[in-house]
Design a protein around this nucleic acid. Structure first.
Lengths: 163, 163
DNA sequence: GGTTCCCTACTCGGATAGAGTCTGTCCGAGTGTGCCAGG
DNA sequence: CCTGGCACACTCGGACAGACTCTATCCGAGTAGGGAACC
């Protein structure tokens, strides 16, 4: 079990958009050049963020993506859910209901979820709660000023060289 | 991202061992029959639990596995880590250090982990904390008595029919 | 009858295929821009 | 000089291969138990 690498890409792109993105859209190719990522695959990740309503995309020349909401209103959980999909970490297969002796059990016995599922879900909720507690704006505020300045300069350089 | 199904198998097997396992080892084939699981693949899952020190295995006739510790001293986190492996959910690829402008940045800028990594790790720690807070004994205590009785009866029936 | 040996059957353990998902790539549809011709 | 139309180039969006992990399977090494032969 490992989170897909696209999550990291998506978060860094949201941060970059929060810093350098104004009213003008940013092409995904430029974001890819910022971090030396595969442009086409990053495009796929940004597509998911767009479909989830976190970004808005504009086609044509001078097109690209930009944040659909203020960075304060985009949580890390939003980005993770958009990239990874809505499936929960742990999906209970209800193996307790299988087995030779299960069909004879009272249906009422399985009305409540089993303890295994409950325990895993409780941990997953804690995970989601922590992810929801931090926004893109929080991450941006916690970044050293030197890094922000470097990213802005790098972005300006790329924007000036037709990328 | 989805936890492997072996986690659920391992937890249910630990619970079953806590209920029906005494001094005698339980063969993995019987545990597989309890839940109608693939016997060989369950064997692989139990191998990981054994290698992690959660179970002890005995070869030969009348062999099998049993809990290596008291159920109170086996946490859900132990089982998850044993089955899934020690890798963290989120592994930071440090893409912030990539890109054309990165090599000119001061090394001191990257001394601290980036905010993305920190945020993801904080959520993962909350997840692990919740998993560590619950033991196999807790799960066993929370199971309805009817289910425990059914599992014990099912186990006795299987043990009597040379499985 | 007791003891020793051997043989069998059963167990775990690791090495070996198949399926599903993540990563990476390609090409087509759609759109805004800039240019050019005409008035 | 201003306006309308048009061709272009650039963007996103979805359809298409390759790689890796998860799932499932098979066979071999090792061991405890039971039975037979022997004393």
């Amino acid at each position: 079990m490992r989170t897909s690498e696209g999550v990291e890409w998506g978060l860094h792109c949201c941060l970059t958009l929060a810093w350098v993105g104004g009213a003008d859209p940013v092409p995904s190719a430029r974001l890819a050049a910022m971090f030396e990522l595969s442009p086409t695959y990053l495009n796929k990740v940004l597509q998911r963020l767009t479909r989830a309503g976190l970004l808005t995309s504009a086609p044509g020349p001078r097109g690209g993506v930009r944040l659909a909401r203020a960075p304060e209103r985009i949580t890390v959980m939003d980005v993770v859910a958009a990239v990874e999909g809505p499936d929960p970490l742990f999906s209970c297969a209800e193996i307790r209901q299988r087995g030779a002796g299960a069909e004879g059990a009272a249906v009422r016995e399985f009305a409540r979820p089993c303890g295994v599922s409950t325990a895993m879900r409780r941990a997953e909720l804690a995970w989601r709660r922590e992810l929801s507690a931090q926004t893109v704006a929080d991450l941006a505020a916690g970044t050293p000023a030197a890094s922000v300045a470097r990213i802005r300069a790098n972005y300006a350089r790329l924007a000036g060289s037709s990328v």
